[in-house]
Design a protein around this nucleic acid. Structure first.
Length: 574
RNA sequence: GCGGGUGUGAUCUAGUCUGGUCAGGAUUGUGGCCUUCCAAGCCACCUGCCCGGGUUCAAAUCCCGGCACCCGCACCA
């Protein structure tokens, strides 16, 4: 099928359109039109079922704007900006580090604009056209803004939803009653000021992410508590070495293709989700990031990729082991503790020697310096205590002064230490979903053709409109019955459309094209015995059912019951 | 951001080189007639030369600038 067909349907039928169209458009932004918005919501809700309800995680909703420190800490300010330099004459823009590296034949150069500027000046590097180069500047991929009156405090629009959740760690840890592992999820917008966004929904400047952060004790990564559920799921894996393998999740861990059960579990979980969205298994694989392709925070990362007709293999999900990178970073920047506590199965009891300052003598002798000396002494470990026991003398530096302490000032004491556990920084496993990309992949996979007409085979659970109601002909009696059925469907929460114009075939074709899975037609027999026909979009097969059962049937069909089951049930009844 | 290409009703497209008599076709959509299950037929109708400037008696057509899209390069944590 020609690739533009999908594009054309999406535009004409109200799924998607370029944003700000009437003002000429702005690249990198798309509007979800009525059907697209509904489809997107349905995909997000299915994601919620998988990553919130089923996993026992909770969802949070954090702001899209954050003060500068957040992204300084996360490394985005440093790593998320490229040094660029432009020619004063022809205007060509270069990645400054790439240009310098190439011209000087170096294997790597600093990304610091100042350093690059020096090198350019020093070696008289010019543009390819011979023109002078301008100043080296940082071109950030983050949108910046000012917070408060006059925008005094610098802020950024978040380039990923994740940071909002990391920052919340101390609260979340308490909320989950200090037990690991626990997960938290968020669906929200993220912003990246792409230099040249292309490929429609695949690279947007404003996009929707669905991310889960699973905080786990690194010592327990090897075992996932529910791993058995997916142990047998077969995964198509393309590891770094480039040799594709198809293995069960448990086999992949056993052979070391996947590093631990936690990552394997979320690969399998993600696969189930994508399959349920209607992406066929043969168009799905997991590819491990190459070392140099990985984000600055990740230790390991596997992308779920979908084979699209139009763009080839497209990354739709990234499942990364972010280790303790983010929590440590925020702890450093903010000063807030981002650690969890691990209790030992048995307390460790240890006897230790310790130095105790004698304040009665230290005080009068050293005056203002005494408290500092005491603090310093208490901080010294067992080794210093043993040393003092042997020599009876200790020299310490306090501020700028050196003082000599003797047995008059200190005594050695033996204490019993009971250590019941230890603090550690949890690791984070992060499945991160690009909702817009998934939506595109779902649409492409759903598009098919029957007798020259387009049929969008969206799974009933995510189809924007679940049912269409038609009178066979535009006759008063038929319309009346059809309308009441239509009203009843909507009353029961089923999104439905009603159409009485044009021939019946045309109306079926119309709703096939927008992916309505079920159509109900009221005909003359309906007037006699209260039955209507229920038509399945994917095969055009029809079953005769009682009109009053229709809303309940459609609801069941949209939440798991198969057409086959319905047919068998009806056959058994008759 | 660079180079090349493109931009005509909701959608696809003819016309652009060679300025005027050019805004045409198809699909879709709307209203009606007809019609007993898969885009039937007939009638009527809505909707358009990407935006801005220039050249010219006259611009969809030529020139300049902008915007968007496509391809290649670069970028894509």
């Amino acid at each position: 099928m020609p690739q533009d067909v999908l594009q054309e349907i999406l535009l004409r039928r109200g799924f998607l359109c370029p944003s700000y169209e009437v003002y000429g458009g702005v690249s990198g932004f798309y509007d979800y039109a009525p059907l697209g918005a509904m489809l997107k919501r349905n995909i997000e809700n299915l994601w919620r079922r998988y990553f919130v309800v089923e996993e026992g995680f909770f969802e949070v909703d954090t702001p899209t704007i954050a003060p500068e420190q957040v992204f300084v800490a996360s490394g985005h300010v440093e790593n998320f900006a490229d040094p660029v330099v432009s020619c004063r004459k022809c205007g060509t823009t270069y990645r400054a580090d790439h240009l310098v590296q190439e011209r000087l034949g170096l294997s790597s150069v600093s990304a610091e604009p100042e350093k690059l500027q020096e090198l350019i000046n020093e070696h008289g590097i010019k543009c390819n056209c011979g023109g002078e180069l301008g100043e080296v500047a940082r071109s950030s991929l983050m949108f910046s803004t000012g917070i408060g009156a006059g925008g005094r405090r610098r802020g950024y629009l978040r380039p990923e939803t994740a940071q909002g959740m990391f920052i919340l760690f101390p609260r979340l840890y308490a909320f989950y009653r200090k037990r690991l592992p626990f997960g938290v999820a968020q669906i929200g917008r993220a912003y990246r000021n792409e230099i040249s966004p292309r490929q429609g929904l695949l690279r947007l400047r404003e996009f929707t992410q669905a991310e889960a952060e699973i905080f786990v004790d690194p010592a327990e990564k090897a075992k996932h508590p529910r791993f058995a559920k997916y142990a047998g799921d077969r995964l198509r894996l393309l590891p770094r070495d480039g040799v594709e393998v198809v293995l069960s999740a448990s086999e992949a861990v056993r052979r070391g293709v996947l590093p631990h059960e936690f990552l394997a579990y979320y690969l399998a979980h993600t696969q189930r989700f994508l399959l349920e969205l209607g992406i066929p298994a043969e168009r799905l694989r997991f590819r491990q990031h190459l070392r140099d392709e990985m984000a600055h925070y990740a230790e390991d990362c596997w992308d779920a990729e979908v084979k699209t007709e139009r763009y080839g293999w497209v990354e739709v999900v990234g499942i990364a082991d972010r280790t303790d990178y983010d929590l440590r970073a925020h702890e450093r920047m903010s000063g807030a503790e981002m650690k969890a506590f691990r209790q030992f199965s048995e307390p460790v009891v240890r006897r230790e020697l310790r130095l105790v300052p004698e304040m009665q003598t230290l005080g009068p002798e050293f005056r203002a310096l005494a408290p500092k000396i005491a603090e310093k002494v208490r901080s010294l470990g067992e080794r210093a205590a043993r040393e003092f026991e042997r020599t009876g003398r200790l020299e310490v530096e306090v501020g700028d002064e050196r003082v000599v302490l003797t047995e008059r000032h200190l005594r050695v004491e033996e204490v019993e230490l009971r250590v019941t556990g230890e603090k550690f920084t949890p690791h984070v496993i992060e499945p991160s979903f690009g909702i817009d990309r998934i939506l595109y992949a779902v649409l492409e996979c759903a598009l098919s053709e029957r007798e020259g007409k387009r049929v969008l085979r969206l799974r009933p659970a995510i189809a924007p409109v679940k049912a269409a109601v038609f009178p066979l002909l535009a006759k008063e009696e038929l319309e009346k019955l059809a309308r009441s059925l239509f009203e009843e469907l909507r009353r029961q929460g089923v999104v439905a459309v009603y159409d009485a114009s044009d021939s019946i075939g045309r109306r079926y074709a119309r709703v096939d094209e927008i992916g309505v899975p079920f159509a109900v037609t009221v005909d003359f027999e309906s007037l006699e015995n209260g039955t209507v026909t229920l038509r399945l979009r994917d095969t055009a097969e029809q079953l005769r059912v009682a009109s009053r059962e229709v809303p309940e049937l459609i609801r069941s069909l949209c939440s798991g019951m198969s057409w086959q089951e319905l047919r068998e049930r009806l056959e058994a009844e008759s």
